[in-house]
Design a protein around this nucleic acid. Sequence first.
DNA 1: TATCGGTCTTTTATTATTTAATACAATCGC
DNA 2: GCGATTGTATTAAATAATAAAAGACCGATA
Lengths: 301, 301
Amino acid sequence: MARTNVRFVQSFNRMLRTCKDMEIGHSLPSENAIARDLQVSRTVVRGVLDRLSQSGVILLNGREKTIQRAVKTSDYMEEPSTLLSIDELENRFFDWVLRMDVPPGTVLNVAQIAKDFHVATHTLQEFLSSLSRYGIVKRRARGGWLLEGFTENFALELSEFRSVLELNAVRHLIHLPADHAVWGKLAALEQDHMRLLSRIETDYHDFSKLDETFHFTVNSVVDNRFVREFQKIISLIFHYHFQWNKEDERTRNEAAIHEHLDYIEALRSRDVMRAEKAAKRHLATSAQTLVRSLKAHDHLA
Amino acid sequence: MARTNVRFVQSFNRMLRTCKDMEIGHSLPSENAIARDLQVSRTVVRGVLDRLSQSGVILLNGREKTIQRAVKTSDYMEEPSTLLSIDELENRFFDWVLRMDVPPGTVLNVAQIAKDFHVATHTLQEFLSSLSRYGIVKRRARGGWLLEGFTENFALELSEFRSVLELNAVRHLIHLPADHAVWGKLAALEQDHMRLLSRIETDYHDFSKLDETFHFTVNSVVDNRFVREFQKIISLIFHYHFQWNKEDERTRNEAAIHEHLDYIEALRSRDVMRAEKAAKRHLATSAQTLVRSLKAHDHLA
DNA sequence: TATCGGTCTTTTATTATTTAATACAATCGC
DNA sequence: GCGATTGTATTAAATAATAAAAGACCGATA
């Protein structure tokens, strides 16, 4: 009925492994040193040392913490199943929702989802609250959460927002000096695209990852925390849709590669109009793909 | 040791007020009807009716809920002090932080703040979690929250992001037909600006609100949930800084009014370059003001 | 004199509990 | 019989209580 003692158990076991490698008669370092090493508080360290002394592995005497006997397998404690952190939850949640096992408009059952995902309910609550900033979920008047996205409108607005950010990045990028790192990265990406094109018949599937890297590279020239945060969610959503929209995948990806190559070429020309045009064309295609795959999935539901 | 019964108490008192206006011998409507009326579940209604029957105000007999006696003042229950909701919390929190009672880098004490703000700790946790999407706070590795903003960099990046969004809005706006509502609003705003200018000596303080309305109007032409969400936080932060940066306030505001008027004029010309230029100039001034007021406040701390 | 360990307080994460919502079954009046 | 109403049971959410961990303080010690 309170917080778990995973930290204690893990620290205990790690401490045992350290003891195992030490000779009998030697002494462990100071509590502070151990705490620093294990990245836990001294309170935990003291708990661990107490327990080690109780089971006779070490002898506490003033500042001496002498190893008394060899460590046995039975000394180790079993680690309680650790819950997912809020970051790990993000991926699982999107995986679950974006595959549209869940249609928009669903009322989310916090208790059930928390159980399924092996997270504490309050962790899920926090996560949903943070998602509500993006309008993906909404808090209902008297308890409960409503899944709003991913509707067609959501996809359109997300794509539009993405375009605004990326076009801004493009305008920055073309003014960067020739020795800026981004140009080298773009050249490398160009090669990657060409290589993939040559083996597109079989490996068209690899485009998803390449696409993510490409857009990330373009946007990386803007050093802004808000852009970065949004980029994260944008790439997450686009990436997921890539994964499960299999229709025309080879054709679509091949066309997208050509658009990317045009895009890179246009950037390199340093011509604002041309670069913007190439970017816009690709972003429009991308938006269309997203909307279409949403609709296709909707039909199944 | 569990959730509060505010809902029950409030429903009970509201029910009593209804009973007070009814004559003895009359019967209350069905549980479902009452639930609909009070906007609570039937469970609560049944609880209320039970209690009313216990205290002899009504007599329950099958489907009859007959009023038995007049309602006395002592019948009413005292309402427990209700906690702030997460929305109300947002304003209080920003008020607290942006006035820089709290320097960047502070570790936030959830328990303490929750008590000070009269919210449940989990409400605060959720709120902080949602703020972490904007990088204003960060979750620390082993518990606790770290206040990151509002540093100079934060102000710069926020301003930059604001510019990106607003310039996009400007590009949309100038292509809107002459009969679009926004032109009327801009004309009205222009008048408001002129009027304020004529009484600037005394009423320069009113500019803050006008500024907010103006930028809201410009951005309103973009119908995008992500833009809207960000607009909320941007206007919040800019607005707060307006409130407490008193240095040169009259001069600054007067200059800003002129920039706004130029801005409106430029929009009306429908000339992209001119509109962008006017917008950029004002946004740059605005960014500078924000950074400067941050620094000024920093000196005091 | 700087580090160390004992003690205590503060703070956080999680569970247990209470209230509220809702689904379903039974009943009543028309 | 049928729709509305109530009775009952299950489920879910909000919050208080609580165990674990972090950290502050201080005298002791090498």
